[in-house]
Nucleic acid binder design. Structure first.
Length: 582
DNA sequence: GCCGTTTTCGGCCCGACTGTTTTCAGTCG
């Protein structure tokens, strides 16, 4: 430990004290002491005495004592105590311009926000606009600030990079020396989180492609430039890697760079049994190239079905493709309506009417509006006396839409309380067409308690579906501890549906367990959890993940037509209540 | 928490700017 280390710790203490809303002059004392120490010519060692330290102007007896303790033991109780009581995410939030300790503390105390990711999500859910001394502009500025600091993180949400990736690819695709090209890698596989953007291109003029690529105006920085491989960084902070091959090699390279690594390994292992070697340049038997013009040809050569990129995760797709049992994956056009929508009856920023008009424009047949329930006060959850008004508005609009074959289903997103019970008495729950249940509080239970709590909610006869089953916020908040397999089993036993929350921040149910849910016969609903018009379109991200999870049209609830959905919801309610009354 | 002193408490830099709010709080430099 030297002078620099001590100064750093003093500064950190100052920051942590700020977040505790301590006396500003005490805070300044620590900052001043740090600066004074660094500026002094003292040779700080274990032998340095408290008296020597207090001789420095700006370091008094208290801080001198603490520096002494630090030098002697390498640690300081005050410092450790502060670190343990203040979430590290709060310190990170200070990096956001326009956001200082006061506001951070307010957000932490009142909304329980502990890191940048949660904050971003709260902004997107419009939860800051009504706080005292916050507002629309403040919320926007915070979002802008978050964008700025996110640049330098190494992981990216699919949704935040796909547009930029497509723009760059578009330019490569249209460059006159490029013959064929494609996005590859995890982005092509539609992973929820990606590290970089991979592009594969075929050309006879690789150097020209490299020059073109590295001089794109999108290239904030050129990371590497070689003869067949280059890398640039976009202003969003993500790297784009390009790899060029001859056109003959293109399908093999595309397959190779699409991955996943695990899929490639499994493919190679399979090929070895036929004495075939696979690499990015081709399929080889006794060093002789087996000609393929496309990826389809490659799979065909092994007598396999074509495996869509989303499935290439070595999750059983190779065996299925050989047995001709790959699923016929759901597509965007299969979705007939959207559930889990918040409007300005709770924390959404659109009216029910605006929402429905957009959905009609999008070609959908129904909307399942589901405001927050009364416990979710932070989100303007519906108090019991507001429900009649909410129903009246829906009835009024439904009369208008009758001729347009569009219908609004009356729903609620009911908080699952700590003991697993729901937020309203049965006589209120019974009035809704559907009831979505969800955890929004007390995330820190043990796995056993949390699982029990959720299963109790699933067993409630009024429950239609479970929203965001693990509560994760990608790159921000880990899932709460829950035995997801037991949850799926309980959903299957109780005829309760599971949501695949399509918000690009959630994508929860995880695709890795979708296949299991499908096998248990649980219906999945792809829900955008929309709070705005723009959010309505995010169902598409959910479709991506559903595809990764092997789901077909028939596995997904909201592919039913309006007529079918009316029946479905009615029957489900009846059957579940009947079962209980027995 | 530091400093200074008319020696043990009272002051500690402050104005511009923004976004709220309708007179002010918070952030920045």
């Amino acid at each position: 430990m030297d002078k620099k280390d001590v100064a750093r710790i003093l500064n950190e203490i100052a920051t942590l004290l700020e977040l505790k809303d301590e006396n500003p002059f005490k805070i300044r004392a620590y900052t001043n002491a740090a600066r004074a120490l660094e500026a002094s010519d003292i040779d700080l060692t274990e032998k340095t005495t408290v008296e020597e330290l207090t001789r420095i102007k700006g370091i008094g007896s208290h801080i001198a004592e603490r520096i002494k303790i630090l030098m002697d033991s390498g640690t300081l109780p005050l410092y450790e105590e502060l670190k343990s009581t203040i979430p590290p995410g709060l310190v990170e939030m200070l990096k956001i311009p326009t956001l200082g300790p006061k506001k951070i503390k307010y957000l932490y105390d009142n909304l329980g926000i502990t890191n940048v990711g949660e904050l971003e999500y709260a902004c997107i859910e419009n939860r800051l606009v009504d706080l005292p001394h916050f507002g629309k502009k403040t919320q926007e500025n915070i979002l802008k600030g978050i964008e700025a600091i996110k640049k330098y993180k190494e992981q990216f949400l699919y949704a935040s990079v796909i547009d930029g990736a497509l723009e760059v690819w578009e330019k490569i695709k249209n460059f006159k020396y490029v013959i064929r090209s494609s996005i590859a890698g995890s982005l092509r596989r539609k992973k929820e989180i990606v590290k970089d953007i991979d592009i594969v291109a075929s050309t006879d003029e690789s150097l020209k492609v490299m020059d073109f690529f590295t001089s794109l105006k999108e290239a904030e920085e050129v990371i590497a430039k070689g003869d067949t491989k280059s890398s640039i960084r976009l202003s969003s902070g993500i790297n784009v890697d390009i790899r060029t091959v001859t056109d003959e090699q293109f399908p093999y390279a595309l397959h190779h760079f699409t991955g996943s690594k695990e899929h490639n390994i499994a493919m190679r292992t399979m090929a070895i049994k036929d004495n075939i070697k696979i690499n990015e340049y081709g399929l080889f038997k006794d060093d002789k190239l087996i000609k393929c013009y496309s990826e389809e040809d490659i799979y065909n050569f092994f007598s396999m079905q074509y495996i869509p990129p989303e499935l290439r995760e070595n999750f059983g797709e190779i065996e299925a493709a050989r047995n001709n049992t790959l699923p016929e994956l759901i597509e965007e056009k299969d979705i007939s309506g959207i559930f889990h929508i918040h409007t300005n009856f709770s924390d959404g920023n659109m009216s029910i009417k605006q929402c429905c008009e957009e959905l009609i424009k999008m070609g959908f047949e129904y909307a399942g509006i589901s405001e927050h329930s009364k416990t979710a006060q932070y989100a303007g959850g519906l108090k019991e006396e507001q429900i009649e008004l909410y129903f009246e508005e829906i009835d009024r609009l439904n009369r208008q839409y009758e001729n347009q074959s569009f219908k609004i289903f009356k729903g609620i997103e009911s908080d699952i309380l700590l003991d697993g019970s729901l937020d309203y008495p049965n006589e209120i729950l019974e009035k809704f067409d559907f009831v979505i249940v969800a955890i929004h509080s007390s995330f820190n239970l043990s796995e056993e308690e949390m699982t029990k709590r959720i299963i109790k909610a699933i067993e409630n006869p009024y429950t239609t579906m479970l929203a965001h089953p693990t509560g994760r916020l990608l790159l921000a908040r880990d899932p709460y501890k829950v035995d997801i397999i037991k949850i799926i089993n309980a959903a299957a036993e109780n005829n309760v549906d599971l949501e695949l929350n399509a918000s690009p921040f959630r994508l929860d149910l995880d695709w890795r367990v979708c296949k299991y849910a499908k096998e248990k016969g649980v219906k999945i609903f792809i829900n955008p959890d929309a709070h705005s018009i723009q959010n309505l379109y995010e169902y598409k991200f959910g479709v991506n993940i559903a595809r990764k999870g092997w789901l077909e049209k028939e596995d997904v609830g909201n592919t039913l037509s309006l007529k079918e959905m009316e029946e479905y919801l009615k029957n489900k309610k009846m059957e579940r209540l009947k079962k209980v009354s027995k």
